[in-house]
Design a protein around this nucleic acid. Structure first.
Lengths: 342, 342
DNA sequence: CTGAAAGCGCTTACAG
DNA sequence: CTGAAAGCGCTTACAG
């Protein structure tokens, strides 16, 4: 029982003495097929290590059983670290896809370029997952274009009402609020916020809004001089702290909009001889693995990447199947470590 | 100029007033096509946002323009950290694929399960890249099966002569040798080696062989009592150090077969009140981002993941195109930090 | 330089 | 329960 090259369903049909469509039916578990016939077919297929040709099958069925993950990275000149938070998301998305029986195409995109987002148009994928697309205002036009084209997609980001497409995110406002309340509870009063709080970065902005709300809840006002823009990198965190120190702005705590910023800030503080948390408490956001490794451990707001990955995949599959779905935001969880407590 | 649903090449043909094959030729850059005709076709295709249906194209051409990355992970009960080294590899493989014009399917595999390695059989991918497949002796049977089936694949691992398929790895022997020489140069004489040195983990074994060779080059013998098995995790590193201390084995340096092991070892040493590097110097392997973050910084052997990713992808594509290729090993580079020097 | 024809390997109505 | 037929959207000899 041998066949030249990879076997086709026609080869199986010949060997089983049935027609090719019957092989197809048996393989797909069509209940109409006689049980004996099915068994014979499956045995032969197994023996020949036959696998359905997905190109043929997908062409006929007009779908691919595949999702595409578009991961956007800054074209950093120094080839610096990708935010480990996204690594974690990528892992959970991969696993969620496997659970749902979808394959996953992964593509790293340059923010500067035109997006290479034609996986659905070329029928290689049934939908897209967008991760880390940078400046929201710049991305917005392209997101709207995807919506217009009828592309199925979900993105990780701020789940705000007026945004195009479907966004899944964590409750950034709540996270920002929790961190600042935690710092206030520890007796801190002058809390610097490191992170871009403009509409370009809606997630950071929400964290900042939560921060301001917590201050107000405590009867305090937000000091604009204590907010410093920073993108999510260690370098930016160090720069922000140095800018504050050099400007002579007094502060007893730092709330960094991401752990990478926080870690950069911790280094810069230590380099200037400041003790953490004695002189300055530091809080972050994400709970990347490094947060637990640095000394002292970094207090941070944990995002549940496992739930996030599942929800992204499930929501996208719902959208592909034509089920209406909207934004969704996930609860967060404060993890207290040595950088804010003694 | 509108079309119901996603446009096909036939739609373009109608609009351009040519036959469908001419559209196909124009789109693929066939030089036979009249320049004016081509321009007209491209303009229409662009306007309709037409993309070639990859399922149809791949079916006809019998290839997919896609590679599959099989990433094996231990079914760790605690959902612990994936070795960050593999994250880095994944990034460089993704980028290398993009450069070569291939798409990349990513699949996380459970070590325990049967491998889900039928991407090539089902024509979803032209070849496989294997990363982190655990115990080599257990994997060997499956690797041999892939070879027998004629599957195109490359794997990251020890590039040793008698292994099935094509392996790309770093020069583990050289790396092991360099680290131990570095520790000896620093005046250390009792160097514990943490890592499984059995044929189950050929990469660790090579690192160990390099270590032993460096000892011999210095006129020293290897003390079997100083080698402790450990898989690549912080937990295993901590366990190994505690086992040595509890057994009362004296040592003034630790050479961990991976950075994760080293970091676990550093924590365990610190917990027992030992100073790094004063009491015990610590060296690792991989140069994961955390190695630079821990205090003191971890001296380690850097693997060039960028070159590795490119080489894996290039070699696989060569193999797919029928070009003979063999194992390949990449140079390594010692990075000295505070864990071994003052 | 271009068109008519065949065919990649499936899946799914349509008959029987 | 099963087979003959059509067709998914391309690409590539083969004619002209």
């Amino acid at each position: 029982m041998t066949v030249k090259g990879r076997p086709t369903s026609l080869d199986i049909a010949h060997l089983a003495g049935v027609s090719q469509p019957t092989v197809s039916r048996a393989l797909r578990g069509n209940p109409m097929v006689n049980a004996d016939t099915r068994r014979r077919i499956l045995a032969i297929a197994d023996q020949l290590n036959y696998k359905v040709d997905k190109n043929a099958s997908n062409l006929r069925c007009q779908q691919s059983g595949t999702l595409a993950l578009l991961f956007f990275e800054d074209p950093a000149p120094d080839d610096s670290l990708i935010n480990p938070f996204f690594h974690s998301m990528m892992g959970s998305i991969t696993r969620a896809c496997a659970r749902r029986g979808y394959d996953l195409l992964v593509s790293f995109q340059q923010l500067s370029d035109d997006w290479h987002a034609d996986y659905e148009d070329s029928k290689k994928a049934d939908g897209l997952i967008l991760l880390g697309y940078g400046d929201y205002l710049q991305a917005r036009t392209r997101l709207e274009q995807l919506v217009r084209q009828g592309t199925h997609f979900v993105r990780w980001g701020a789940a705000l009402p007026d945004q195009p497409g479907i966004a899944i995110g964590c409750d950034n406002f709540q996270g920002g609020h929790a961190m600042t309340r935690h710092l206030l509870d520890g007796g801190r009063r002058r809390i610097a916020f490191l992170g871009d709080a403009s509409p370009r970065y809606p997630e950071f902005r929400e964290r900042y809004r939560g921060h301001v709300q917590a201050l107000q809840d405590a009867g305090l006002g937000a000091d604009a001089g204590l907010q410093v823009d920073a993108i999510s990198s260690e370098t930016a965190g160090g720069d922000a702290v140095r800018a504050l120190l050099d400007a002579g702005v007094g502060f007893d705590a730092v709330f960094a909009a991401s752990d990478l910023i926080a870690i950069g800030a911790m280094r810069a503080l230590a380099a200037r001889g400041l003790q953490i948390p004695a002189d300055v408490a530091v809080g972050g956001f994400d709970d990347i693995p490094m947060a637990a490794m640095v000394a002292p451990g970094l207090t941070t707001v944990q995002q549940d990447t496992r739930a996030a990955g599942s929800l992204l995949v499930d929501t996208l599959i719902d959208a592909i199947r034509g089920q209406a779905c909207g934004h969704h935001s996930l609860p967060v969880h404060l993890v207290a470590r040595g950088s804010t407590t003694t």
